[in-house]
Design a protein around this nucleic acid. Structure first.
Lengths: 322, 322
DNA sequence: CTGTTAGCGCCTTCAT
DNA sequence: ATGAAGGCGCTAACAG
């Protein structure tokens, strides 16, 4: 493998000059530059990234932690990776299966300087545990959280959910069921606030039996489907916090011969691929932009930059389950 | 950041001794070892992976190339990554969006020693192009191919497809449609052979109009749905080479009020999550084991090992579309 | 503008 | 069994 020394010899200059043209740093005469460039071309020189990383102490890679490969994640990951590449970063994916230990191992990679920063799609450990790692590099997440040492791609779930419920109201629904995420999650709290105000404003009473706070079980949607099937008082419609859970719900009730929207209206959330495939009416809240922002934040931290973030928006995607 | 020198000082030995206990290589007296271990503990020493990688010229990471997020991929990726971690490897994911240039960039990472080996879920460039990169490290793929410089997680599609078609026959279907993948693909060729023999054996004539060779368009399934909708002579059932394409097909015909299996039987392939969600009858061909094998091959190549691969099996997963 | 030199942290001979 | 020394490829002062 050719090194800068080989290039230097071939070009008849010193290795520092070669390094200078490589990094575009410091003064190099045009003639030297040309000689070096020609020599690199001729020899087929390829810089050793390992040496560079070692020398600079920086890996130019970001860790991306997620519990598993969810369909929701596809779009997010794709944009995140594209943005990263555009700014010269690699992305390391860590699938934790919701295993705290695995998540910790991933976080440890930053301590070991294997990655420069971390993005957490959905955390598994408590924030207090994760916080310890922020001393080793920047962390950002998709969940909105209170802590200020961590960044969150902020989306106003309060406004989004309020809008969504009004849409359901306008479509004629009056008996609502709500399926929310983890109650500790700030997004969940914002949605909770929105739905309470919505029910008050419209003068519709809230059925506590159908105000579901999810844990983060894999097949929550199926469980909710069962609950619905066994329920005496079925709500007219259900608003989910995730397309994926909504899809599982529909899948479950279909097994027993029920259908949406005939038997129950279903509103998803994410506008992920699965919602398209299964014709689920859903809410688009610009996941792409959130992914972009999530990376940009990390990038800004790592490089002392201040690249502006994108403004997020919300949109109802009308399909067949409402 | 503490280095081995700091540890050496604290332990009152030389850095070579520290290195020896670190690598478990060479002779170290038990007393020295204990002193070193204690010193590392006390100082909170963390080995610098970057330095190690640089020194050894090896990154202990494998590139995983895929065109985009596919639901099929979830399970495969998860097992691949778990196996990798078990053997001390990291995995770098590259999503190419079916863009040849992007795939090349990923391949180039191996040239730049950024990764030690590469796995390609589904290639975008021609094999001849990809072949050039095998000089930089081992490559394996999910597609079976003829070239011997590349490994493929082998699954006998001939046998699997034959079995699947017989199942459809036993269920009473007589008019078949076949949706196959890229015709250059050896798996496709194997399936082609199987279906020809099947039709001959059973004395059923093959409708050339419903022998579909796919290119690799994103929404092929929807296109096939349209074709089916506009078709005069609709086949009784359709056997797909992928759950995902089958899902798109069903999604499309449902938009026009048709249903499976009432209007057309649908057999998927992969037993991926989407087939579960949409109740698609499908063929399981142990994707997990293929993922395991794919990594093990790379590992064996990289480390001159001969860890045995897992034997693959096939199974019909009966759900609702047949 | 360019060359010399000194590391970055670790592993690995080579003596002893 | 241990220490000294050299080197992996590159960057970044520091002198000219």
């Amino acid at each position: 493998m050719a090194t800068i020394i080989d290039v230097a010899k071939a070009a008849g200059v010193s290795k520092s000059t070669v390094s200078r043209v490589l990094t575009d740093n410091g003064y190099v005469s045009e003639s030297s530059r040309q000689k070096v460039l020609a020599a690199m071309e001729e020899i087929g020189y390829i810089p050793n990234i390992l040496a560079r990383q070692f020398q600079s102490g920086v890996t130019k890679t970001i860790g991306f932690i997620a519990p598993s490969y969810l369909s929701t994640m596809g779009k997010f990951l794709q944009v995140f990776m594209e943005t990263a590449k555009k700014y010269g970063y690699f992305v390391n994916l860590y699938l934790t299966s919701g295993d705290k230990q695995k998540e910790l191992e991933a976080l440890n990679q930053m301590k070991f300087k294997q990655i420069d920063g971390i993005f957490i799609l959905t955390r598994t450990n408590e924030w207090e545990v994760i916080e310890k790692f922020s001393q080793y590099g920047p962390i950002s997440t998709w969940n909105r959280i209170e802590e200020d040492w961590i960044y969150s791609a902020y989306f106003d779930h309060y406004e989004g959910y309020f809008k969504a419920l009004n849409y359901l109201y306008d479509e004629g629904y009056r008996e609502f069921g709500h399926v929310l995420g983890n109650s500790q999650n700030l997004n969940t709290k914002a949605r909770m606030k929105a739905l309470k105000e919505f029910h008050e404003t419209k003068g519709i009473k809230l059925n506590p039996d159908w105000l579901i706070q999810e844990s983060r079980l894999y097949d929550d949607g199926k469980l909710i489907g069962e609950k619905w099937l066994n329920s005496e008082q079925k709500p007219e419609c259900l608003a989910f916090y995730s397309d994926y859970v909504a899809a599982q719900f529909i899948s479950k009730i279909e097994e027993e011969g029920f259908k949406s929207p005939d038997d129950v209206g279903v509103l998803g959330f994410d506008n992920s691929e699965i919602s398209d495939l299964m014709h689920i009416t859903t809410v688009d809240y610009s996941i792409e932009k959130q992914a972009y922002n999530s990376f940009i934040y990390l990038y800004n931290q790592l490089n002392d930059m201040a690249i502006p973030e994108e403004k997020l928006t919300t949109k109802i995607i009308k399909r067949k389950t409402i």
